[in-house]
């Protein structure tokens, strides 16, 4: 039996983020690494320095709209009559006191000094994943738009903020890229319980056995609330699985390729 974990819309947002993030990384790195050989190759893929930045700008705008729509969607998901529970309850992504407790338990478990924490719907690192994007994206967006219209921007704020904006944009991008391509990819693909691929975000559902092991508190909550019947989901069809495996590995490969090359060539560039 499988339990539904992500709605179709959640998965579309995630897919959107994969595609835009990879394009932004490739075009952004093609710019950052432009003084190096690899950067020039990457630029050539996108049709040169000029068009690669054009793609970067348009996809950036797309991401900004994605962010705005996602925020609107978030607002619609708030249960206003039951505000406290909908923000700090077990189904919410907002960090709460249980996360601290779970983290402490997990540290003890790492060293065999205690039982595994009984995680609910969202583990604390999953919440971190979510909020890292949520604050990172606006920072990239603000600094990106500033640099996109430097003359326009400097009409409202002093021009030297563009130096700071450029630095923040690059540093935040590097932070996001290294987090996603190292930690997030590891958790999604390489981690023993997910290997070869954690399918939840593509299939939209997880098996009950996996849940009982990974997220026992959520399973319990579903049973208590009597939602387990409605949360049942079908096994994804084979063809669909094949497609998202191929897609997932293509994204993984591209990410690792960009990561390794950027580390190799990082000696030759500066952040400004």
């Amino acid at each position: 039996m499988r339990i539904k974990r992500f709605s179709a819309l959640d998965r579309v947002f995630h897919l959107f983020l994969i595609l835009t993030f990879l394009i932004q990384t490739a075009t952004g790195f093609s710019r950052l690494f432009f003084p190096t050989e690899w950067g020039k190759t990457l630029n050539a893929v996108f049709g040169g320095y000029e068009s690669s930045i054009l793609i970067h700008k348009w996809v950036g705008i797309l991401m900004i709209w994605g962010f705005i729509f996602h925020t609107l969607y978030l607002i619609t998901r708030i249960d206003w009559k039951n505000l406290g529970n909908s923000i700090f309850g077990p189904d919410s992504l907002v960090p709460n006191i249980h996360d601290v407790k779970h983290f402490r338990q997990r540290l003890r478990w790492f060293f065999g000094m205690g039982p595994r924490p009984r995680l609910g719907r969202w583990a604390y690192w999953e919440k971190f994943d979510y909020w890292a994007v949520y604050w990172g994206l606006p920072l990239l967006a603000v600094t990106g738009v500033m640099m996109m219209y430097p003359v326009f921007t400097s009409r409202y704020i002093p021009g030297w903020t563009l130096n700071v904006a450029a630095l923040l944009h690059r540093a935040e991008a590097i932070l996001a890229v290294s987090y996603i391509f190292i930690v997030h990819f590891y958790v999604g693909h390489l981690r023993p319980s997910s290997f070869p691929m954690n399918e939840a975000m593509f299939a939209g559902s997880v098996s009950v056995e996996e849940l009982a092991e990974e997220k026992p508190a959520w399973l319990e909550q579903l049973q208590n609330e009597g939602k387990i019947k409605t949360a049942k989901a079908k096994t994804p069809p084979l063809l669909y699985r094949v497609i998202y495996f191929i897609f997932g590995y293509a994204a993984l490969g591209l990410g690792v390729y960009l990561l390794i090359n950027s580390i190799v060539y990082s000696r030759y560039i500066t952040l400004h």
Partner: peptide, 11 residues
């Protein structure tokens, strides 16, 4: 940079 202002030049 067409339209550059003094503020812009403080870059």
């Amino acid at each position: 940079h067409e339209g550059a202002s003094a503020s812009f030049a403080s870059y």
